[in-house]
Amino acid sequence: MEIDDTTRDEVRAIIARYPETRSALLPLLHLVQSVEGSVTPDGIEFVAEQLELTPAEVASVATFYTMYKRHRTGRHHIGVCTNSLCALLGGDVVWKSLSDELGIGHDETTADGEFSIERIECQAACTHAPSVTIDWEYFDDATPASVSEVIAKLRAGEPVQSTRGPVIRDFRATEHTLAVTDDGLAGEGPSADHRMLAGLTAAKERGMALQDTAAPASSEGEN
């Protein structure tokens, strides 16, 4: 595994975040994926060395979590939620059309290395079902057509806007975000979308008084 100076600094910074070094294990595995695209045996040895663990200890952890990939992922990694609610609301249909379009199945990668796809579990986006993620950036309320369009754009190198965050980068870039948690993109995406605002909107429509007493005057009155 090729480690450049920036990565080395990041490793140090990640370890320094924790009172005990072993806590850096999950973030470091994300960092390995940001460099290698998957958790390779080399990557495992590297992390083991950094944290003074045995490679078995690291591999044991790496194989427990589904986000750590053991084989090559595509440049873009696409997940379709097929847990009950999303599946019923269209996830199954989206999955099938995506899988047919790319000609690959669960946990497989296209021959050109562009895409890998995965049936994923509940993404905490049930209100936005069916939920699709591209490089873990959300692509809410997906349809076969919308997903197909995204694939075409990504192939063509055109920008694809995720629904909650930035323009899609690639799998490794997101893994890097997960490792270091600061990518300067926190301002991308809306504060909240219309579904997250559904309750607030309904309340406003019905003229229901805001219950927050944040206005300085009201705090005593309420007590």
């Binding site: 926190a186 809306p190 504060s191 909240a192 997250m196 605002l197 309750g199 607030l200 909107t201 309904a202 309340a203 019905r206 229901m208 008084a209 805001l210 219950q211 927050d212 944040a214």
Partner: peptide, 17 residues
């Protein structure tokens, strides 16, 4: 029962976060 936007009260501000 009326809705009570408290945690959600200002989510429609573009900079609520």
């Amino acid at each position: 029962t009326p809705l009570t936007p408290i945690l959600t009260a200002h989510w429609d501000d573009p900079d609520s976060f």
